[in-house]
Design a protein around this nucleic acid. Structure first.
Length: 775
DNA sequence: TGTTGCTCCCTTTTT
DNA sequence: GGGAGCAACA
């Protein structure tokens, strides 16, 4: 028997060993949530609950597997048979057995992100929407809006009203587009991510056999990261557990099997998926929906040292929301949190590489992570790491399965499973020259009509495609394991790969071979293909050991490392410029920052470069520090500033420069009076922003109304089309950046920013008007 | 008519 | 680096 009381603290113990009935575990970051779930699983197993009666819904399959494995080790036996994974993967498993009736006998395919985009684009073109109208949103944004409306279960118009006011004139067109997209999926037998959840809900409501079977089977349900569930996911939990308010409907049938043994685990301070419809109300309302809910709070943090927690707590203390929570730890000491200010994003990459090399003396590679807000923020760093020969693994951003060559290969497998899979057919057909979107449609229509003669005629002009189809038919006729099927596809695809990507096909080929490894874990091809769309299966565990991790903060959820470096902590990146439409969006960014910081056990380092290279502007833009960095009280961090030549120096407190806490709004480069940029830096184009302009140390800065130094005064800008004279911009720059010169306001960027150009400097700056008001 | 090539622009987060 | 829009080509 396991000594639960010994292994767990009081609250954890209460959660792990609670009897039947609903339980809500509110678990702060690093409070031993996973440990609690693991012991809960073991405890249930010890009490005779069959593993196959447990359903463990987690954020990733990996998280579920890890918990099951740990629970199994605790018990000294395997815990196989537990269903575990994401809501979407679970839904697929169920729908695979109980087909949605409207599909009839047709097989269905789960759409991946590219399929969804292509389908929406297709419908948009069909409806002739947005042709020549620049104000009409791009396909990508439409996909986001449609999905958001479904996830929040609001009419599209309502979503537009709240988050994209400027698109309201297109509400009608977009709504029609949404309907066309739905019709498209129905017609083609396709399910997107949202469909999986809604179809599962429909099944549980309308198919009594299925509902009863599932309720009888799953007597104990555990849901992790409950704060990130959306409305339909919460209803699915209720339907599966059969909470009382669901009983007044038609589903009185399986009452005997309804137990309400649900344990929901979550933390409202870590809610970071509102953008896809996650609803914090779910966790708050849980006790209402499940009367008699026992609420257990885990508040002691076992993960992080004091300095790390101080920063995390400070972030939450500035939150607008009321969930003021403070984590506490008994871990004394610990390294200070570093706040580093590189000169630019390019030098940030170098500094991070250098720092990672230092940290590698103390930590194993897999104990170090670099986190960022968006996938593309790490591009520079990836190159620098490659140059330095430091292996890494990246999570988030573009996925493995989204690389073009990988999609090609998967398309063959999808056609084997479902000959009518239009997106896959389009992909395979499109590889042949001379076949574009229109021809694809014609060929597909011909094949669908089933008229052998006309089909043959249509395909006759494309012998290469005909060969592809024969290859696929052959594969279908001779069923093999998923791994050997992909082996055959890879061999067949090889010549196409070489001609398609003459420069780098060997690299891609290497990547493709990973597919066989991944497929080896599956016996059913359709499960594997669905998982490729739903959650990228892990490559083999072993080679992850020697690599550091790069990850978006979202993908870092639930994970922890000894050392965590967060990069690009500047305005417009973190928080993301797209996330500032509404105050609550800003709060979600704050929680995201909180999640990022609480991933660290010992070392936390924040990087806020003073300038960021912008391809569009062909130069470095000066950027402001992230508000999350600016608001940190000085004592919480140890500050390091990069001078020219890559020299890092400790900043000696705040005295001496006449700087106050408030003045930290200024870019810290003010402490280093720039020497001429070294030739080496010029050669690389780095620090372009600094080549021709000067940053003054704050103490030396003339008053805002001081005369403009003659060198710059010569540049007298014209009044701008944007309607503001150069003098306005001038003043702006005095206040915010201590850059002297006359700028032109080029563009007003709603809601509150302006872009200012400094002719003759090659410098463009985006300024926030509301910050100007502060001065 | 449909495909391909060129240029400009913008780049969130995930299932 | 990819999508969208436009122009030239088959």
């Amino acid at each position: 028997m396991i000594d639960y009381a010994q292994a767990l603290n009081e609250a954890q113990y209460a959660a792990a060993t609670s009897g039947d009935g609903p339980v809500l575990v509110v678990a702060g970051a690093g409070s031993g949530k996973t440990r609690t779930i693991v012991y809960r699983l073991a405890w249930l197993a010890e009490r005779g609950v069959s593993p196959s009666a447990m359903l463990l819904l987690t954020f990733t399959r990996k998280a579920a597997q890890e918990m099951l494995q740990r629970a199994g080790m605790l018990l000294g036996q395997g815990l196989s048979g537990v269903q575990g994974g994401t809501f979407h993967a679970f839904a697929y498993g169920v729908l695979r057995r109980w087909h949605p009736p409207w599909l009839g006998e047709r097989p269905f395919t789960v759409m991946d992100a590219a399929d969804i985009t292509a389908a929406v684009k297709h419908c948009k073109d069909e409806l002739r929407l947005g042709k020549g109208d620049r104000s009409f949103p791009k396909t990508q944004s439409i996909v986001g809006l449609l999905s958001k409306a479904r996830n929040k279960e609001l009419p599209l118009e309502e979503v537009l009203r709240h988050e994209a006011f400027h698109l309201l004139p297109h509400a009608e067109g977009l709504t029609a587009l949404g309907e066309a997209y739905t019709a498209y999926r129905h017609e083609k037998g396709l399910l997107d991510y949202d469909d999986l959840l809604f179809e599962l809900e429909t099944l549980l409501r309308e198919n009594q056999t299925a509902a009863t079977t599932l309720r009888q089977r799953f007597s104990h349900i555990l849901v992790d990261e409950y704060q990130d569930t959306n409305l339909v996911q919460a209803r699915i939990v209720r339907l599966l557990a059969g909470s009382p308010d669901m009983r007044d409907g038609e589903e009185d049938g399986g009452q005997k099997a309804v137990t309400g043994n649900v344990m929901a685990v979550g933390d409202e301070a870590q809610s970071i998926y509102a953008f896809r419809g996650a609803n914090v109300r779910n966790i708050l309302d849980f006790p209402t929906f499940f009367p008699g809910t026992r609420i257990i709070r885990l508040e002691e943090n076992y993960r992080s040292t004091k300095p790390v927690l101080n920063v995390a707590n400070s972030l939450l203390s500035h939150a607008a929301e009321s969930f003021r929570k403070t984590l506490f730890t008994r871990k004394e000491g610990g390294d200070p949190v570093r706040l580093v200010t590189p000169l630019s994003d390019m030098s940030q990459a170098k500094l991070v590489v250098r720092r990672v090399e230092e940290l590698l003396d103390r930590h194993l590679p897999h104990e170090i992570a670099v986190l960022f807000r968006a996938g593309f923020h790490s591009y520079n760093l990836e190159m620098a790491l490659n140059q330095a020969g430091i292996p890494f693994r990246k999570y988030g951003g573009l996925r493995y399965t989204e690389a073009a060559h990988v999609k090609d290969v998967i398309a063959y497998a999808r056609l084997v499973l479902n000959p009518l899979d239009l997106p896959a057919f389009a992909r395979v057909a499109g590889m042949h020259s001379g076949i574009g979107p229109k021809t694809v449609q014609k060929l597909y229509a011909a094949a669908l009509a089933g008229d052998a003669k006309s089909t043959e005629k249509a395909f006759a002009r494309h012998p290469g495609l005909l060969e592809d189809m024969r290859f696929v038919d052959d594969l279908r006729a001779r069923p093999t394991s998923p791994a050997s099927l992909f082996g055959a596809v890879l061999e067949y695809y090889r010549p196409k790969l070489e001609s398609q990507y003459p420069e780098d096909w060997p690299r891609r080929q290497q990547g493709l071979e990973e597919i066989i490894q991944m497929a080896a874990g599956y016996t059913e091809l359709d499960l594997f293909v669905a998982d490729l769309a739903l959650e990228s299966p892990e490559e083999d565990e072993n080679d992850g050991e020697g690599r550091i991790t790069l990850s978006t903060v979202h993908s870092a959820k639930g994970l922890e490392w000894n050392a965590v470096l967060i990069i690009d902590l500047v305005e417009d990146r973190f928080p993301s410029r797209h996330a500032l439409a509404r105050p609550e969006d800003f709060e979600e960014e704050r929680r995201l920052m909180y999640v990022a910081c609480t991933r660290a056990r010992q070392n936390l380092e924040l990087y806020a470069p003073a300038a960021i290279y912008s391809r569009a502007e062909r130069g470095s833009l000066h950027v402001n520090q992230s508000p999350f960095v600016r608001e940190l009280a000085p004592g919480l961090t140890e500050e390091w500033v990069e001078g020219f030549g890559g020299v890092l120096s400790r900043r000696g407190g705040f005295s001496g420069n006449g700087a106050t806490h408030g003045s930290r709004l200024l870019p810290p480069a003010r402490t280093a009076v720039p020497a001429p940029v070294p030739a080496a830096a010029r050669a690389e184009g780095e620090g372009a922003a600094f080549d021709d302009c000067q940053l003054w140390p704050e103490s030396d800065a003339p008053a805002p109304d001081a005369p403009i130094p003659p060198r710059f005064a010569a540049q007298r800008p014209e009044p701008t089309p944007a309607g503001k004279s150069g003098a306005d911009a001038d003043r702006l720059c005095h206040c915010r950046h201590r850059i002297f010169g006359r700028g032109k306001i080029i563009k007003h960027l709603p809601p509150d920013k302006v872009q200012v150009n400094f002719p003759g400097f090659g410098l463009k700056v985006i300024l926030t008007e509301y910050l100007l008001m502060e001065n």
